[in-house]
Design a protein around this nucleic acid. Sequence first.
RNA 1: CGGGACGUAGCGCAGCUUGGUAGCGCGCAGCGUUCGGGACGCUGAGGUCGCGGGUUCAAAUCCCGCCGUCCCGACCA
Length: 474
Amino acid sequence: MALPKQDANFPGWYQEVVKTAELAEPSLARGTMVIRPYGYAIWEAIQRALDDRIKATGHQNLYFPLFIPYRLLEKEAEHVEGFAPEVAVVTHAGGEKLEEPLVIRPTSETVIWDTYSRWIQSYRDLPLLYNQWANVVRWELRPRLFLRTTEFLWQEGHTAHETEKEAREETLRILHEVYLDAVEKVLAIPAHAGRKSASERFAGAVETYTLEALMRDRKALQAGTSHYLGQNFAKAYGVQFQNRKGTLEHAFATSWGVSTRLVGAVIMAHGDDRGLRLPPALAPIEVVVVPVYRTDDERGRVLKASHDVARELAGHRVRVDDRDDVRPGFKFNEWELRGVPVRVELGPRDLDANMATVVPRLTGTKEQVALSELGDRLLAVLAQAQKGLFDEARTFRDKHTFRPKDMSEMSRLLDDPGGFMLAGWCGSEECEAKVKAETKATIRFLPLEPTPPSGPCIVCGQPATDEAAWALAY
RNA sequence: CGGGACGUAGCGCAGCUUGGUAGCGCGCAGCGUUCGGGACGCUGAGGUCGCGGGUUCAAAUCCCGCCGUCCCGACCA
């Protein structure tokens, strides 16, 4: 099960890691996947990180249904136009054709705002700060495990506010305090927080904010989005409230979501030629102890010592790999492939010297540590692993951030080595489309606030309104 | 939908040109030897050759039709 080299064949490398590390595998229905326990444990850790932050910012969880009557979807014109091509529709049920087809939610703005119309009467009912954990279905044309599957798991927040200011603040609070914080501190992936151009905006949004990260194949990945929806949905679904002055007004909306795609982001941002590398904050197993023995005597002695190590690290996720049917070398490789941050090898030689062999996944170098200092040393290695992955990814990203002088240079750099291209943009869709046509790159993000750069638009030479970050993307 | 390829054991593939009753690697089961970096030997289980039709004494192989999957383009968390 040798992995393809990352540089030579990144898609092959990715697929092989997802499969052999037992994260997930394709399933029967087109574009769907089965998430296996190890992959799901990573997702659960991501969920916990997000859910903690969502609640800490004052939100509550609730749940809306999977099925949405087609007519509800149609009420917001831009929204339906954006999603219609990729919704799955149920036309038959209970053995007959349905009078009205049901769509399987591609996102839940429509049902939720239809419901909010009954929940919101007065400014006293606001704000509504709700989130749901759910599955959604989007009929994507090019599915890829975790990154773009027909069905995926995610979290979607839907809030309603009294004022535009409050709603806009909410959009940015989620972006920073929930998404950026979790992605950088837990997933150890450095990300740019930015604004989407009009063409990349969510269908029905006034403003879309995004988190963009650079993967190891130097393509960008959108890791989360937060939308300010203005009053579009409130108007479409008749959500009005009586304000403090006694007059009727439409509520202001936000929505925001991140998905199982983040599991793919962790794989692609941190993986190396030996497989996965997981940040300890996310790793289902932080420390694996591999006992080495030959005879029954040695086995008993070494296993006892192994469990002592596990006990000393109470509160951390430690696994003693006591399988008798595979040899140590196999275990070393397997746990490296699955990204466990630290391995401890314990054999008769170690025990005779009152030592253990410690091997951090990041460095791969073996070090001898006295048993009496092992606990402290492991904690230090774990802390270093979390920081090391983040620092390495940030250095990598900065090294692959360029300021091309003109289109041909941008084109050349995108081709090799790839990365983010920062350049002036005049704000016109024509220029944006031209870059895409010539280089396949899209604008991944604009600065949070419009900030004219020093140079002109890289396409037309007119004065620029923003410094845009272009990249090839997933 | 436009362009290209492929469907043979759980997975990855060979066999097809030139028809003769299905094979390799990995994995799986049993036994033994091994065990500090992906072990080895022997034995064994496992296949409607995508589906339907045709040609032929005989079809995985040749012919016709259908179905499905994957890759490249437009979409996308």
